[in-house]
């Protein structure tokens, strides 16, 4: 785990690098050195992180500032989880952490140590789609599809939480997922059908 001292030394290190960079207008060699300093300093700031994603255990090394969303997409290459607004306003990044739906863009990856993460890639069972995925296809619950992974992840929890008893309740408890194409009526229909189907989710 990084210490305060390490952080301070990194800040000093970067200050020196910046000073070097100021001299580099005349010297490309020094520019190169500055870039390397940054890379080396970044390595110092990484910390170990263990978590499980879609049933697979990962032992990773991340900077504290990396969000769970960026970790999933950029380090684990799970591109199903989408970056929409990156500020918790659109819901495209919704994933399950220990069974609860959250906005992965506002969760630092390091805050998820030891947690079980489920993304849209982990919902189907082999080639057999999850009932919510089937229902979204049947009811045409999307148009461009960008918000769909977040909508589906959110919808699964909406039913599990017991907040899908009628259309009004579904609209209220799905309000954290924005669809700019306006597929809302079909999304509500898909969720209603899964709720009525009573399958185990």
């Amino acid at each position: 785990m990084p210490t305060q001292n390490k952080n301070e030394s990194r800040r000093d290190f970067l200050k020196k690098s910046t000073a070097l960079a100021a001299l580099t207008i005349a010297s490309p060699v020094l520019t190169k050195a500055g870039e390397n300093d940054e890379k080396i300093a970044a390595l110092f700031e990484q910390m170990p992180l263990r978590l499980e994603v879609n049933g697979v255990a990962h032992a990773l090394s991340v900077e504290p500032r990396v969000t769970l969303l960026d970790l999933l997409r950029e380090q684990l290459h799970l591109m199903g989880t989408k970056k929409g607004c990156d500020h918790g306003q659109c819901g495209a990044c919704t994933v399950h952490v220990d069974g609860k739906r959250i906005n992965s863009c506002l969760s630092l990856a390091v805050m998820n140590e030891g947690k079980k993460i489920t993304t849209i890639e982990g919902l189907a069972n082999g080639d057999k789609l999850h009932p919510m995925q089937e229902a979204f296809i049947k009811h045409d619950g999307f148009q461009c599809g960008y918000c769909t992974p977040g909508q589906i992840m959110s919808a699964v929890c909406c039913v599990k939480e017991g907040h899908a008893n009628n259309a009004e309740e579904i609209r209220e408890f799905m309000s954290g997922n924005i669809c700019r194409c306006g597929a809302y009526p079909n999304i509500v229909d898909a969720i209603m059908e899964v709720k009525k189907g009573g399958q185990s989710l």
Binding site: G88, G91, T94, K100, R101, I102, N103, L106, S107, S154, C157, C158, E161, H163, E172, F173, M174, S175, G176, N177
Partner: peptide, 12 residues
Amino acid sequence: INAGASAQLRNM
């Protein structure tokens, strides 16, 4: 509480 934010944010 249920009038505030979204289901995802209330879970965090």
